Simulated scan of single mutants.
Amino acid sequence: MTDIVITPMVIPTSVDAGDATEFRAMVDIGNRMARSDGGIDDLDDTAEQLLPSWLDQTDRLRRGFIARSDSEILGAASLTTAVAEGTTSAELELMVIPPHMASGAGRHLLGRLEQEAREVGRSVLQCWTLHPAAPGERMLVPLTGWGTAAATPLSDLLQESGYVLEQIERNSVLSLGRPLGLATQRLAEAMAFAGDDYRVVTWSLPAPPALRDGYARMIARMSTDVPSGDLEVEAEVWDDARVVRRDAQFLAGGQRMSVAAVIHEPAGEMVAFNELVIGSDPTGVTHQWGTLVVKEHRGRRLGTIVKCANLIRWREIAPDSPKVSTFNAEENRPMLDINEAIGFVPASYAGGWQKKLV
Rank of each mutant, 00 (worst) to 15 (best):
G106A: 07
G39M: 09
R138M: 11
D281R: 14
D59Q: 10
R301K: 15
H287T: 10
M218C: 06
D19K: 08
P135A: 02
E265M: 10
I278V: 13
R298F: 03
A220F: 06
D56V: 12
A117Q: 07
T304C: 11
R178E: 13
T80K: 11
Q49A: 15
N171T: 13
T283R: 14
G214I: 08
V15L: 07
I338Q: 09
P206D: 07
V164M: 06
W314E: 02
R199I: 04
I219T: 10
G214W: 07
Q49P: 00
L336F: 04
P346K: 09
A194F: 05
D230F: 00
A77Y: 03
M139L: 14
L157R: 09
S175M: 03
V96N: 09
G104D: 03
L157P: 05
L292K: 10
R256Y: 00
L74C: 04
I219Q: 14
T224C: 04
R315V: 06
L174I: 11
T81F: 01
D213P: 00
Y349W: 14
T21E: 15
G18K: 07
P135E: 06
A207W: 00
R301P: 01
M257L: 12
G299T: 08
G303C: 08
I342N: 11
R186V: 09
W238R: 10
P334G: 03
D19S: 11
E330F: 11
F327L: 11
N332Y: 07
G177H: 04
N274M: 05
A207D: 03
E48L: 12
T291W: 01
L182T: 13
Q115H: 12
G64T: 10
A207I: 02
Q49H: 02
E234T: 13
T88Q: 14
C308D: 12
V294A: 05
G147Y: 08
A67H: 06
T326C: 03
V173I: 15
G195K: 12
R242S: 10
S348T: 12
P142E: 04
S348L: 11
Y215M: 13
Q115A: 14
S69D: 12
P266M: 04
L55R: 15
S228Y: 00
E296T: 14
Q288L: 06
L182F: 00
I338N: 09
A248S: 13
T224F: 04
M270A: 14
A207K: 02
A260K: 04
I317N: 02
G106Y: 02
A117W: 02
R63I: 04
I219S: 02
G254R: 12
W146N: 12
A260Q: 07
D225Y: 05
R186P: 01
A105V: 01
M270T: 15
P12K: 03
Y163P: 05
A267D: 15
A150Y: 06
L143P: 02
H297E: 08
T152Q: 15
I312P: 08
